[in-house]
């Protein structure tokens, strides 16, 4: 290990991520006050913040967006603006969720779902002829491909303090009814908890989602509000299919 000749922090440093968010004014009042208070009394962290605020670099331009990916507000915001507040509240009550995003639009859902027990992270495990792969892999922004003979298992991570959670797996595919390849399960929260059972996905691209709640999640709601509040992974067809 090496170290630059600079003073160490007076206590526990404010992380670079927190400093960056502080500089962007993205921290809430309490967190911002904590950062401000520490930086005022810590030359090392003040210098680190200075490296951020003094940085005036210009980045190269991004290429033009391909057609069809022009961003728009999340559907829930458009919905709220058009008066769907009551329905939105009802849907949230059913699914015990906070985050909702559109199923097929540009703002594709993420692999984290939030419910009152905390956050649940979805991971898929793919068995392709004996070769085991984890989806998403090293790149959290990545997507994976799917072949009809792949065998899939579902892994979830949720905070042990949440106790148990009901998990249900849904598969969404264009032009196909929503399918539920596994029975709903009540699992004890922890790291990389594997759900019993496995399934295959035929028919190409699919979005695999898990719904989480303190009680079995209403499947009717899962069908009516695809991916809403769920942790999801998008799978594209393997090349050549």
């Amino acid at each position: 290990m090496t170290a630059a000749a600079a003073p160490a922090c007076t206590g526990e440093p404010i992380s670079w991520l927190a400093l960056e968010r502080y500089a962007l004014d993205e921290l809430d009042g309490r967190a911002a006050a904590r950062v401000r208070g520490h930086v005022d009394g810590c030359p090392a962290c003040r210098a680190a913040l200075g490296r951020i605020t003094d940085d005036r670099r210009v980045l190269p331009a991004l290429p033009a967006l391909p057609a069809g990916t022009v961003s728009r507000p999340p559907w829930w915001r458009r919905w709220l603006w058009t008066g769907g507040v009551g329905l939105a509240v009802a849907a949230a009550a059913v699914l015990l969720v906070v985050v909702v995003r559109s199923p097929d639009g540009p703002d594709r859902p993420g692999r984290i779902a939030r419910w009152k027990g905390g956050e649940l992270v979805l991971t898929l495990v793919r068995d392709r002829g004996g070769a085991i792969g984890v989806v998403p892999g090293d790149d959290p922004a990545g997507v994976a491909d799917v072949r009809p003979d792949d065998r899939w298992k579902v892994q979830v991570t949720c905070p042990p303090r949440a106790g148990a959670a009901w998990i249900d797996v849904a598969v969404y595919q264009a032009g196909e009814p929503t399918s539920f390849p596994l029975d709903a399960h009540r699992v004890a929260c922890g790291n990389d908890v594997v759900l019993p059972g496995a399934f295959r996905i035929t028919g190409g691209a699919a979005t695999v989602c898990v719904a989480v709640g303190d009680a079995p999640v209403d499947r009717g709601g899962i069908v009516r509000h695809p991916t809403a509040g769920m942790a999801c992974v998008f799978l594209r067809p393997a090349p050549g299919l």
Binding site: L17, E20, E26, P63, T69, P74, D107, R108, A141, G142
Partner: peptide
């Protein structure tokens, strides 16, 4: 890559 994949919902921690 994010644009090409349609991964448009991002925040700094992500």
């Amino acid at each position: 890559d994010l644009i090409a994949r349609g991964e448009l919902t991002v925040d700094l921690p992500y």
